[in-house]
Nucleic acid binder design. Structure first.
Lengths: 168, 168
DNA sequence: CGGGCCCTACCTATCGATAGATAGGCGTGC
DNA sequence: GCACGCCTATCTATCGATAGGTAGGGCCCG
């Protein structure tokens, strides 16, 4: 994976987390990176393949981070809350897969598969950590919803308010 | 408000709930209603004004329904859970304002104001019903996140799993 | 060594489709 | 007769995608 391809994925990730799948274009990404839109097509043949690649990388990174911290013996719920919280307070944007999931009906199959994978893997990890299926779904839903509220209200503290009940 | 204008808002609401703000066009709406795109512009000068009008109507209807049911003496949490659940099981789509909020960074100010209003009014109503600020935020976040998961996973039962903890 | 060859990583230019938006005309009913 | 509702036709901008070309680096073969 070349530096340019990485930079393209970074730019696409930023754009998607702010404005969803329809919220970014090859020209914008190209401008962000400093190349022409045709060069973005060189690295990613279609918009779908770029979207899917970004979602896949996001999921890998996210789950790896979670697994590493859980392996350190930290409380599972706390690890998940902090993973989302870092992302929110870091740049004030949505969870990438949350932003994509909200408009799931205009995602191509290729992208949808990757987005679903994020949520399925997430629930799987939570259940493996000892939570019931109900509790796992509740935790993931609350964290995604908390990101949504904090973002749209431009009030990060809304995330903490919503997530507080998970820790008790 | 003419029948056509109502039909335009109905069509826009359906499209937005499935694919977000960028996920609908004047031509699609026009085809849904059975007129030409220029006629949609006759009723709503700009896409922004249509989006804002739809979000405003959605909020009004939603809050009115909630208030009516709460006035009947039903449990507040149960009323909120059922309001979202009906929408999900009815047509398998997102909460309109949730779908818009997820891509808040590419909404115009006009639309963003209406979307924010939904969440601010919602929190206000929940607090007025006796919930703490934290609890109100938790409930709204969980319900929005539960809609998100149920939709992207095409598994309505995920909503019930996520929301179950709210009723206990 | 060096010429031929292919590959990577970009470029310019352009395609057809579609987006939101507008101008101006036609017909119906009060 | 004029306001309303909808039309045809068209505009400009932008979309994802493609065609075709170029600079430069590595590699093999004689």
């Amino acid at each position: 994976m070349s530096d340019t391809a990485e930079a393209i994925m970074d730019a696409a990730e930023r754009r998607i987390r702010g404005a969803g799948y329809s919220g970014f274009s090859f020209r914008e990404i190209a401008a962000d990176v400093g190349v022409k839109s045709a060069s973005v097509h060189y690295h990613f043949a279609t918009k779908e393949s770029l979207g899917a690649a970004v979602a896949h990388r996001y999921t890998q990174r996210f789950m790896s981070s979670i697994e590493r911290e859980v392996a350190e013996g930290r409380d599972v719920i706390e690890v998940w809350v902090q993973a989302f919280r870092r992302s929110l307070y870091g740049d004030g944007k949505m969870c990438l897969c949350g932003a994509l999931a909200a408009t799931s009906q205009d995602l191509s199959e290729e992208v949808l598969i990757e987005v679903r994978r994020f949520f399925e893997l997430g629930l799987e990890r939570l259940v493996e950590s000892g939570l019931s299926q109900e509790r796992a779904t509740h935790v993931l839903a609350t964290l995604e919803g908390a990101m949504l509220l904090a973002n749209v209200l431009s009030r990060p503290s809304a995330f903490d308010e919503a997530a507080a009940a998970l820790s008790t």
